[in-house]
Design a protein around this nucleic acid. Sequence first.
RNA 1: GGCUGGGUAGCAAAGUGGCCAUGCAGCGGCCUGCAAAGCCGUCUACGCCGGUUCAAAUCCGGUCCCAGCCUCCA
Length: 469
Amino acid sequence: MLQIYNSLTRNKVPFHPIVPNKVRLYVCGMTVYDYCHLGHARVLVAFDVVYRYLMARGYDVTYVRNITDIDDKILAKAQELGVPFTAITERFIQAMHEDTVALGTLPPTVEPRATEHIPQIIEMIHNLIARGHAYQGPNGDVYYAVTSFADYGKLSGKNIEDLTAGVRIDIDTFKRNPLDFVLWKTAKPGEPAWEAPWGLGRPGWHIECSAMSTHCLGANFDIHGGGADLQFPHHENEIAQSEGATGQPFVNIWMHNGFVRIDEEKMSKSLGNFFTIREILKSYHAEEVRYFMLSGHYRSPLNYTETNLDNARTALNRLYTAIRGLDLAVTTNATESELAESLESEFVARFHAAMEDDFNTPVAVAVLFDVVRELNKARVEGGDKSIKLGITLRYLSSILGLLNTNPDQFLQGAVSTEIADTEINELIQQRMQARKAKNWQEADRIRNRLLEQKVILEDGPQGTTWRRL
RNA sequence: GGCUGGGUAGCAAAGUGGCCAUGCAGCGGCCUGCAAAGCCGUCUACGCCGGUUCAAAUCCGGUCCCAGCCUCCA
């Protein structure tokens, strides 16, 4: 039985989809005004694994991940560069897609954009006003009245009194309550704007997610995810908006992933201590980044260090080395039931037990290494058992989005420009001659020379193979 | 100040009452021309102080430290 930690109730709950066998999943995606950093990579990978695992369990999953393509920061950047805001969003949407492809994440079922859902946003604001949850201020902006929603604070464990006590004094406010937030923002001259009953303007940040999720998945759906920093106020406000507008319960399970940290501090744009995905990919294979993310539980903080990425590299090398040279063609795109005869059920069961416990990837990964040990032992003997273990390893890894590359390609792949494959092979040939002549000094000289180029040679019964460090 | 989480060996990271996590690194051995890879064995743990229990890293109380949210943020 799959158990998922629900941020709303702060405990693990058995997962029962609202519609049997169907899962509706919404994840807050990116605001596209800059390149994605490792923190974004973590959300992408964490929910990619949730998506993959739910599908592996046989669920028909609708995965919605939105794009925020209208927002103050986007407008600020457009102004700074003197270009239309769409030039900014187009550029960074494309960059984001490049990053998601590089990270090996599956594309979501739908990727809605705020600017393409203005009618739905307007309709929801209209409903909120009609139901007494929203009002138009003297400045023309439309606000959500937090005191009109009795459950406000239920997700983040806050209450209106405490929040009010700590609120900053905002002199030019047109809000009835300092905690009220903008649903519709009146456009200043020159700003992009859409027609609405309350005048030309644009949606506030929180309303778009309510409108898009409801539009794509219905008023009540199964799982809503995002980074832990979105829990308050963003997700709290989404609940207030959606439940206020529809009168129905909004989301059954809220999932929040932990942060990526640098020097024990949250990685974020505002702190300026971030690495973009594309920067990291200059030094590390995307799969190493993914392994690094999965080596910790999705709710725990994850400390970014080069040592940790290097550890991910050696760990992944061990996994790939285990299946190198095995003929596992049969596994391509097969489902678990199709593969049943080819899998070692004990490891499959342990893997599922780990994943069913709130997607416990560190334990699931540990199972992979147990498979590796058995596999390496079986390979000495040869025969069917090693194939079966290899298929098991690759199948289970695929659920985590790992080991999808050809092993030789991965182990010999260059991350940055280094010594060319042809030159490596030439040197290996030279060394082979030296070894035949038992000229060990020359053989070792060549091996050391390659090692300086971060190429490791492995002499086996079938000849010499190589891999990059 | 209010509210969440967390402190596990050299590093990373699970576990949550009694038995092995796991990966890397270290040490010893096997294998190898020597290595590498692999296999076998092995050493470093549960922040601190009390308590409950036959038994606690795991439960309870206290205490110290860390991170996050309360402002845009994945």
